[in-house]
């Protein structure tokens, strides 16, 4: 009777920390939707946080955008003191280089190859992660409506690999000193 086995796994995962981590290691993740009700307010807060690796891909991406396009410099700078023209002059280069970097790392392309503003039909098995429907949603898919945004997707994901020491893991941009 697999249903009992499933329930048994379910409750063991919920109440037995060690078993849960074993299941996780197996790559088996119990359906989160099924767990939701019991879960509310009962998340075991005592679980030791898994030790996060000191260097995170997000830092590597930030460092890349800073190095290639000075992205962090421009978003960290208060804009209040500058005229639109000044902001525009600096932004042109930053945006160009950000775009080239994203293109190289992620090869970003529209999700649907269709013109915005035109009428567009979703597939029958419309996936909420790919399609966000707005307005009067009635009836069964496929839905037809005006394409407001063609969406974006990464067609590759080639982040640089970082191999530095732990104490530099959170450095987004190094200090620069020019020696005379």
């Amino acid at each position: 009777m697999r249903i009992f086995q499933a329930l048994s796994v379910f409750f063991q995962v919920l109440f037995n920390r060690d078993f849960a981590s074993q299941v996780q290691q197996l790559g088996i993740t119990p359906d989160p939707a099924a767990m939701k009700v019991e879960d509310a307010g009962k998340t075991p807060a005592t679980l030791p946080k898994p030790k996060a690796p000191l260097r995170n891909d997000a830092i590597t991406l930030l460092a890349t955008l800073q190095r290639e396009a000075r992205f962090v410099d421009i978003v960290m700078e208060p804009l209040g003191d500058y005229s639109d023209a000044q902001v525009g002059a600096a932004t042109r280069d930053v945006l160009r280089d950000c775009g080239q970097t994203l293109e190289r790392l992620f090869a970003i392309s529209p999700v649907v190859d269709a013109e915005e503003g035109a009428s567009h039909e979703t597939p029958a098995d419309v996936d909420a992660a790919r399609y966000r429907l707005t307005g009067n949603i009635e009836g069964e898919p496929p839905y037809r409506g005006q394409l407001v945004h063609h969406g974006w997707q990464a067609t590759r994901c080639e982040l640089p690999k970082w191999s530095g020491k732990n104490d530099a893991a959170l450095i987004v941009a190094p200090v620069e000193i020019e020696i005379e």
Binding site: I74, A89, A90, R92, D93, V94
Partner: peptide, 18 residues
Amino acid sequence: QSISVLGRGSKLIGGTVS
């Protein structure tokens, strides 16, 4: 087209000349 040289330090916009 405007050609800019971005400011050298972290004050990017303020140091930009074009």
